[in-house]
Protein backbone atom coordinates (compact mmCIF):
# COMPACT_ATOMS: atom_id res chain seq x y z
CA UNK A 1 0.00 0.00 0.00
CA UNK A 2 1.50 3.32 -1.00
CA UNK A 3 1.80 5.90 1.71
CA UNK A 4 -0.03 8.42 -0.45
CA UNK A 5 -3.26 6.44 0.00
CA UNK A 6 -3.70 8.30 3.27
CA UNK A 7 -4.15 11.46 1.23
CA UNK A 8 -5.25 10.35 -2.21
CA UNK A 9 -7.64 7.41 -1.78
CA UNK A 10 -11.28 8.39 -2.10
CA UNK A 11 -12.17 6.80 1.23
CA UNK A 12 -9.23 8.34 3.07
CA UNK A 13 -10.21 11.75 1.69
CA UNK A 14 -13.55 11.19 3.31
CA UNK A 15 -11.91 10.44 6.67
CA UNK A 16 -10.14 13.79 6.43
CA UNK A 17 -13.37 15.57 5.52
CA UNK A 18 -15.07 13.96 8.48
CA UNK A 19 -12.27 14.56 10.99
CA UNK A 20 -11.75 18.18 10.02
CA UNK A 21 -15.51 18.72 9.84
CA UNK A 22 -16.08 17.33 13.33
CA UNK A 23 -13.14 19.31 14.69
CA UNK A 24 -14.74 22.43 13.23
CA UNK A 25 -17.98 21.48 15.01
CA UNK A 26 -16.00 21.48 18.26
CA UNK A 27 -14.55 24.85 17.33
CA UNK A 28 -18.07 26.18 16.76
CA UNK A 29 -19.03 25.27 20.33
CA UNK A 30 -15.99 27.05 21.78
CA UNK A 31 -16.48 30.10 19.60
CA UNK A 32 -20.16 30.29 20.54
CA UNK A 33 -19.44 30.13 24.28
CA UNK A 34 -17.09 33.09 23.81
CA UNK A 35 -19.51 35.08 21.69
CA UNK A 36 -22.28 34.59 24.23
CA UNK A 37 -20.22 36.77 26.61
CA UNK A 38 -21.36 39.67 24.41
CA UNK A 39 -24.93 39.43 25.59
CA UNK A 40 -25.05 37.26 28.71
CA UNK A 41 -24.08 40.08 31.08
CA UNK A 42 -25.34 43.62 30.67
CA UNK A 43 -23.37 46.85 30.51
CA UNK A 44 -19.85 47.27 31.83
CA UNK A 45 -19.74 43.70 33.16
CA UNK A 46 -20.57 42.25 29.77
CA UNK A 47 -18.00 44.45 28.14
CA UNK A 48 -15.42 43.31 30.67
CA UNK A 49 -16.34 39.63 30.22
CA UNK A 50 -16.08 39.76 26.45
CA UNK A 51 -12.88 41.78 26.29
CA UNK A 52 -11.26 39.51 28.87
CA UNK A 53 -12.29 36.54 26.76
CA UNK A 54 -10.80 38.18 23.65
CA UNK A 55 -7.58 38.83 25.59
CA UNK A 56 -7.49 35.23 26.74
CA UNK A 57 -8.02 33.99 23.18
CA UNK A 58 -5.03 35.97 21.91
CA UNK A 59 -2.66 35.19 24.79
CA UNK A 60 -3.16 31.59 25.92
CA UNK A 61 -0.60 29.23 24.30
CA UNK A 62 -3.00 26.28 24.25
CA UNK A 63 -5.57 28.43 22.47
CA UNK A 64 -2.86 29.40 19.97
CA UNK A 65 -2.34 25.74 19.14
CA UNK A 66 -6.09 25.20 18.85
CA UNK A 67 -6.52 28.23 16.63
CA UNK A 68 -3.78 27.12 14.26
CA UNK A 69 -5.40 23.69 14.15
CA UNK A 70 -8.66 25.43 13.30
CA UNK A 71 -7.13 27.45 10.44
CA UNK A 72 -5.51 24.29 9.12
CA UNK A 73 -8.77 22.35 9.40
CA UNK A 74 -10.73 24.99 7.52
CA UNK A 75 -8.11 25.14 4.78
CA UNK A 76 -7.79 21.39 4.47
CA UNK A 77 -11.55 20.83 4.67
CA UNK A 78 -12.25 23.47 2.02
CA UNK A 79 -9.50 22.37 -0.39
CA UNK A 80 -10.27 18.66 0.01
CA UNK A 81 -14.02 19.32 -0.29
CA UNK A 82 -13.61 21.30 -3.50
CA UNK A 83 -11.22 18.72 -4.99
CA UNK A 84 -13.69 15.92 -4.16
CA UNK A 85 -16.51 17.89 -5.73
CA UNK A 86 -14.55 18.52 -8.95
CA UNK A 87 -13.70 14.79 -9.17
CA UNK A 88 -17.32 13.91 -8.58
CA UNK A 89 -18.51 16.25 -11.33
CA UNK A 90 -16.07 14.59 -13.73
CA UNK A 91 -17.49 11.16 -12.92
CA UNK A 92 -20.65 12.04 -14.90
CA UNK A 93 -19.63 13.91 -18.06
CA UNK A 94 -23.09 13.62 -19.65
CA UNK A 95 -25.99 14.36 -17.33
CA UNK A 96 -29.60 13.23 -17.45
CA UNK A 97 -32.14 15.03 -19.61
CA UNK A 98 -34.70 14.43 -16.88
CA UNK A 99 -33.67 13.86 -13.27
CA UNK A 100 -35.64 13.64 -10.03
CA UNK A 101 -33.00 13.72 -7.30
CA UNK A 102 -35.49 14.91 -4.68
CA UNK A 103 -37.08 11.46 -4.84
CA UNK A 104 -34.06 9.91 -3.16
CA UNK A 105 -32.04 12.57 -1.35
CA UNK A 106 -32.18 15.97 0.34
CA UNK A 107 -31.08 19.07 -1.56
CA UNK A 108 -28.73 20.21 1.21
CA UNK A 109 -27.00 16.83 1.18
CA UNK A 110 -26.33 17.26 -2.54
CA UNK A 111 -25.17 20.88 -2.26
CA UNK A 112 -22.48 20.54 0.40
CA UNK A 113 -19.88 22.23 -1.81
CA UNK A 114 -22.11 25.22 -2.57
CA UNK A 115 -23.05 25.57 1.11
CA UNK A 116 -19.41 25.13 2.14
CA UNK A 117 -18.20 27.74 -0.35
CA UNK A 118 -20.70 30.26 1.02
CA UNK A 119 -19.41 29.46 4.52
CA UNK A 120 -15.86 30.00 3.28
CA UNK A 121 -16.77 33.43 1.88
CA UNK A 122 -18.44 34.23 5.17
CA UNK A 123 -15.36 33.16 7.14
CA UNK A 124 -13.11 35.42 5.06
CA UNK A 125 -15.39 38.45 5.46
CA UNK A 126 -16.00 37.67 9.12
CA UNK A 127 -12.27 37.48 9.85
CA UNK A 128 -11.53 40.72 8.04
CA UNK A 129 -14.28 42.40 10.09
CA UNK A 130 -13.05 41.31 13.50
CA UNK A 131 -9.98 39.12 13.66
CA UNK A 132 -7.89 41.20 11.28
CA UNK A 133 -8.83 44.45 13.01
CA UNK A 134 -8.00 42.92 16.35
CA UNK A 135 -4.60 41.63 15.28
CA UNK A 136 -3.17 43.49 12.33
CA UNK A 137 -5.06 46.63 11.43
CA UNK A 138 -2.86 49.72 11.15
CA UNK A 139 -5.27 52.04 12.96
CA UNK A 140 -5.08 51.07 16.62
CA UNK A 141 -8.06 49.46 18.30
CA UNK A 142 -9.65 51.54 21.05
CA UNK A 143 -8.73 50.22 24.49
CA UNK A 144 -11.27 49.32 27.12
CA UNK A 145 -11.82 52.34 29.37
CA UNK A 146 -14.30 53.39 32.06
CA UNK A 147 -15.34 56.82 33.21
CA UNK A 148 -15.19 57.52 36.94
CA UNK A 149 -15.87 60.71 38.87
CA UNK A 150 -13.19 61.83 41.30
CA UNK A 151 -15.08 62.46 44.61
CA UNK A 152 -12.78 65.34 45.55
CA UNK A 153 -12.41 67.31 42.37
CA UNK A 154 -15.81 66.17 41.03
CA UNK A 155 -14.35 65.95 37.54
CA UNK A 156 -15.04 62.85 35.49
CA UNK A 157 -12.02 61.04 34.24
CA UNK A 158 -11.46 58.19 31.90
CA UNK A 159 -9.40 55.20 33.03
CA UNK A 160 -8.01 52.31 31.02
CA UNK A 161 -8.79 48.94 32.54
CA UNK A 162 -5.61 46.89 32.90
CA UNK A 163 -5.31 43.17 32.49
CA UNK A 164 -3.41 42.39 35.68
CA UNK A 165 -5.00 42.97 39.07
CA UNK A 166 -1.62 44.14 40.34
CA UNK A 167 -1.84 47.34 38.38
CA UNK A 168 -4.23 50.16 38.95
CA UNK A 169 -6.34 51.32 36.05
CA UNK A 170 -4.28 53.72 33.99
CA UNK A 171 -5.61 57.19 33.47
CA UNK A 172 -6.33 58.17 29.93
CA UNK A 173 -5.99 61.90 30.76
CA UNK A 174 -3.28 64.28 31.78
CA UNK A 175 -4.68 65.60 35.05
CA UNK A 176 -3.71 62.55 37.05
CA UNK A 177 -0.46 61.52 38.63
CA UNK A 178 0.40 59.18 35.81
CA UNK A 179 -0.74 61.57 33.09
CA UNK A 180 -0.71 61.07 29.38
CA UNK A 181 2.40 63.17 29.06
CA UNK A 182 4.31 60.40 30.78
CA UNK A 183 2.24 57.50 29.50
CA UNK A 184 2.63 55.93 26.12
CA UNK A 185 0.74 53.08 24.52
CA UNK A 186 3.00 50.65 22.71
CA UNK A 187 2.20 47.53 20.67
CA UNK A 188 -1.46 48.44 20.62
CA UNK A 189 -2.26 47.77 24.25
CA UNK A 190 0.83 48.08 26.50
CA UNK A 191 1.03 51.08 28.83
CA UNK A 192 4.56 52.39 29.34
CA UNK A 193 5.89 55.05 31.63
CA UNK A 194 7.96 57.08 29.21
CA UNK A 195 10.32 58.51 31.81
CA UNK A 196 11.46 55.25 33.30
CA UNK A 197 10.57 53.08 30.31
CA UNK A 198 8.66 50.62 32.49
CA UNK A 199 5.58 48.73 31.44
CA UNK A 200 2.74 49.71 33.73
CA UNK A 201 0.28 47.13 32.54
CA UNK A 202 -1.66 45.89 29.57
CA UNK A 203 -5.02 47.21 28.43
CA UNK A 204 -7.84 45.29 26.81
CA UNK A 205 -8.47 45.88 23.14
CA UNK A 206 -12.11 46.89 23.10
CA UNK A 207 -13.43 44.21 20.74
CA UNK A 208 -16.73 44.45 22.59
CA UNK A 209 -17.36 48.01 21.45
CA UNK A 210 -16.12 47.20 17.97
CA UNK A 211 -18.53 44.29 17.68
CA UNK A 212 -21.52 45.96 19.28
CA UNK A 213 -21.04 49.04 17.07
CA UNK A 214 -20.59 46.82 14.02
CA UNK A 215 -24.02 45.30 14.64
CA UNK A 216 -25.70 48.67 15.12
CA UNK A 217 -25.49 49.84 18.74
CA UNK A 218 -23.69 53.04 19.75
CA UNK A 219 -20.96 52.67 22.36
CA UNK A 220 -18.82 55.22 24.18
CA UNK A 221 -15.84 54.27 22.08
CA UNK A 222 -17.29 53.78 18.60
CA UNK A 223 -20.33 55.00 16.71
CA UNK A 224 -22.80 52.46 15.38
CA UNK A 225 -22.19 51.03 11.92
CA UNK A 226 -24.54 52.67 9.42
CA UNK A 227 -24.82 49.46 7.44
CA UNK A 228 -25.50 47.31 10.49
CA UNK A 229 -28.74 45.98 8.99
CA UNK A 230 -26.82 44.54 6.08
CA UNK A 231 -24.16 43.09 8.38
CA UNK A 232 -26.79 41.39 10.55
CA UNK A 233 -28.70 40.05 7.53
CA UNK A 234 -25.51 38.58 6.03
CA UNK A 235 -24.57 37.02 9.35
CA UNK A 236 -27.99 35.42 9.79
CA UNK A 237 -27.97 34.15 6.22
CA UNK A 238 -24.55 32.57 6.74
CA UNK A 239 -25.84 30.82 9.86
CA UNK A 240 -28.77 29.37 7.91
CA UNK A 241 -26.27 28.05 5.36
CA UNK A 242 -24.12 26.63 8.16
CA UNK A 243 -27.19 24.96 9.63
CA UNK A 244 -27.95 23.22 6.33
CA UNK A 245 -24.28 22.20 5.94
CA UNK A 246 -24.35 20.60 9.37
CA UNK A 247 -27.82 19.10 8.91
CA UNK A 248 -26.18 16.70 6.48
CA UNK A 249 -22.56 17.00 7.57
CA UNK A 250 -22.79 16.04 11.22
CA UNK A 251 -24.23 12.56 10.82
CA UNK A 252 -22.47 12.11 7.48
CA UNK A 253 -19.11 12.42 9.22
CA UNK A 254 -19.91 9.42 11.40
CA UNK A 255 -20.85 7.35 8.36
CA UNK A 256 -17.58 8.38 6.66
CA UNK A 257 -15.64 7.19 9.68
CA UNK A 258 -17.48 3.88 9.59
CA UNK A 259 -19.68 4.53 12.62
CA UNK A 260 -23.01 3.10 11.56
CA UNK A 261 -24.64 0.90 14.13
CA UNK A 262 -28.31 0.22 14.65
CA UNK A 263 -28.04 0.96 18.34
CA UNK A 264 -26.50 4.42 17.89
CA UNK A 265 -27.74 5.69 14.52
CA UNK A 266 -30.94 7.25 15.81
CA UNK A 267 -29.01 9.02 18.57
CA UNK A 268 -26.36 10.39 16.18
CA UNK A 269 -29.04 11.59 13.76
CA UNK A 270 -31.02 13.29 16.53
CA UNK A 271 -27.96 14.89 18.10
CA UNK A 272 -26.83 16.07 14.66
CA UNK A 273 -30.22 17.65 13.95
CA UNK A 274 -30.30 19.43 17.31
CA UNK A 275 -26.68 20.55 16.95
CA UNK A 276 -27.22 21.89 13.45
CA UNK A 277 -30.24 23.92 14.56
CA UNK A 278 -29.23 25.09 18.04
CA UNK A 279 -25.62 26.15 17.39
CA UNK A 280 -26.21 28.33 14.30
CA UNK A 281 -29.40 29.73 15.86
CA UNK A 282 -27.51 30.74 18.99
CA UNK A 283 -24.79 32.38 16.87
CA UNK A 284 -27.41 34.27 14.85
CA UNK A 285 -29.26 35.39 17.97
CA UNK A 286 -26.31 37.51 19.16
CA UNK A 287 -26.15 40.11 16.35
CA UNK A 288 -29.96 40.11 16.18
CA UNK A 289 -30.11 40.89 19.91
CA UNK A 290 -27.52 43.67 19.60
CA UNK A 291 -29.26 45.14 16.57
CA UNK A 292 -32.73 45.20 18.08
CA UNK A 293 -31.84 46.39 21.59
CA UNK A 294 -30.00 49.56 20.63
Amino acid sequence: MSKSAILSSSIAKKYWMALTGLFLCLFLVGHLLGNLQLILKAGEEGKRAFNEYAYFMTHNPLIKVMSYLTYLSILFHAVDGILLTIQNKKARPIGYAHNSPNANSKFFARQMAVLGSIILIFIVIHMSNFWWKMKYSSDPMPLHSITVVDPQSKTPQSLYITHSDNYFPVSAFENSQMGEAQMEIRNGNEFFNKQVDVKMGEGYKDLYSLTVAFFGKDTDAIKANEQAGLAVAFYVLAMIVLSLHLMHGFSSAFQSLGVNHRRYNAGIKLFGKLFSIIIPAAFAMIPLYIFFTK
Binding site: S10, L84, Q87, A91, N104, S105, R110, M112
Partner: peptide, 22 residues
Amino acid sequence: MVRQMEEEGFGNCTNTGACEVE
Protein backbone atom coordinates in the same frame (compact mmCIF):
# COMPACT_ATOMS: atom_id res chain seq x y z
CA MET B 1 -11.28 -3.40 -4.81
CA VAL B 2 -11.24 0.26 -3.73
CA ARG B 3 -8.22 0.99 -5.91
CA GLN B 4 -9.92 -0.63 -8.90
CA MET B 5 -13.10 1.34 -8.16
CA GLU B 6 -11.09 4.56 -8.26
CA GLU B 7 -9.26 3.60 -11.45
CA GLU B 8 -12.56 2.99 -13.20
CA GLY B 9 -13.49 6.63 -12.66
CA PHE B 10 -16.39 6.36 -10.23
CA GLY B 11 -16.91 9.40 -8.00
CA ASN B 12 -16.48 9.73 -4.25
CA CYS B 13 -19.30 8.98 -1.84
CA THR B 14 -20.84 11.97 -0.06
CA ASN B 15 -23.40 9.99 1.92
CA THR B 16 -26.48 11.50 0.28
CA GLY B 17 -28.16 8.10 0.62
CA ALA B 18 -29.68 8.15 -2.89
CA CYS B 19 -28.21 4.70 -3.68
CA GLU B 20 -29.89 3.04 -0.71
CA VAL B 21 -33.27 4.46 -1.73
CA GLU B 22 -32.93 3.35 -5.36
